[in-house]
Nucleic acid binder design. Structure first.
Lengths: 226, 226
DNA sequence: CTTCCGGTTTAGCCTAGCCTAATTCACCGT
DNA sequence: ACGGTGAATTAGGCTAGGCTAAACCGGAAG
């Protein structure tokens, strides 16, 4: 019943719902999946008749409870495989997205749970994103915010990336940023909403981050001596 | 270019070639894949025009060098995943076939090689079948024979199973047979080509094996005190 | 209230893979 | 040399999932 394609659609809708509240547009789904809007409309009819989305023409889509559960399971598998690839097989964090995208479609509760146990029930994947439980619930990550909302003077520890596309992660690598990196916000530039920071312990004295970057980095207050 | 379906066809042809020498029949492929002969014929045209098989109507098929290499890579991935599932995640040997059947289709040289390294470059999978190298060659397993060819009085150590379908493996479990089990051949029954054996170290004194079973077990001479 | 424009949907077409039914071939025995 | 017969192939059709082009809303601007 569930195919790779439908899983990808459900996952995309889940992730778009996180940002835009309710009523995900077909074109945003199309953009995220690299498909044409017309194809999305066609698929929405199928997803609706299977009871996985609430959909009415011209009004966007939302996941049903069943649809959300399927999407969550897919995300869970994706993040477990990423954790495995980085933690166990030694891949870099910018190499695993596409592989996990394939592995996530192997649907087996046994496999997923055994993998989870083998990895020691990890809480987050290599990009700092929370891994859903077997029952499809998140351990919500409290107290984290986007770097774009930080004020001058703040010492922020990077704990997550919003966009785990490989090219974004490689960009972070070349800037010297990674999970656990601590930065001090030096200056804000309202003109283009960019930001100058000092990387604590880094080689470069100062680093300039575009809004595209700061809007995709999660941080928490850095504990001085941790 | 390579799809899941074509990989399955190539793998099936490879395994049928092992038995029947040259000219694999379309119906044998159909049977192995659970498809209709007509579907196989259709696929053969596609495989031929992609240069993966030699095929002439009414004359059976053979793999080309390219086709064989693809098939070998698929088998390699399949057996590495089976080894991982049993050795690392703790699955039983009769639970992994279907899962590996799915995982094998994730085509990534990096992933395959990293997995191989993580597992310590295993020589055989949990069913005793040899794992092809990265270059697509077997370490040939010399000196093994089918149990159906053993003579009365021989002490045989089971080192492989020909058919790793889950139900066959479960049957072996219930008989008390597994990889490494040593049996002594007690009697042959030419009528139905069945065989009575004594399982060395087993609880049952005597065990009766059908030809269906003995034709799917590989053995080597058991070393008395090993 | 009307118009316009961009996003959405429908209509129609395509490919991959599979199926069933009908046809064709190859080979064996006479 | 000639049928028969079972295996193999062709013909035609189906579903899933995608695409392009054309038609269609619906909300903002006049």
């Amino acid at each position: 019943m569930l195919t790779e394609s439908t899983e990808n659609y459900l996952k995309a809708i889940l992730q778009l719902e996180a940002d835009k509240a309710d009523g995900v547009s077909t074109s945003s789904i199309a953009e995220r999946l690299g498909a044409q809007p017309a194809s999305v409309t066609g698929m929405m009819h199928k997803l609706k008749e299977r009871g996985w989305v609430k959909y009415e023409r011209y009004k966007g889509v939302d996941l049903t409870e069943t649809g959300r559960r399927h999407a969550m399971e897919t995300v869970r598998r994706h993040r477990l495989w990423e954790t495995f690839l980085v933690g166990t097989l030694g891949f870099a964090w910018d190499e695993v997205h596409d592989l996990a995208e394939q592995l996530e479609h192997v649907r087996s509760t046994d496999l997923t749970d055994q993998l989870d146990a083998f990895l020691g029930h990890p809480q987050t994947d290599p990009h700092g994103d929370p891994i859903p439980n077997a029952d499809g619930t998140f351990r919500t990550s409290v107290g984290r915010a986007l770097l774009s909302d930080a004020q001058v003077g703040i010492c922020a520890k990077i704990v997550g990336v919003g966009d785990s596309q490989d090219d974004f992660l490689r960009h972070l690598n070349s800037l010297g940023l990674g999970l656990g990196t601590v930065v001090e916000v030096k200056e804000l530039f309202p003109f283009d909403r960019s930001m100058a920071v000092h990387i604590v312990g880094g080689v470069e004295a100062r680093c300039h981050l575009s809004s595209r970057v700061t809007q995709n980095l999660w941080w928490v207050e850095a504990v001085p001596d941790a």
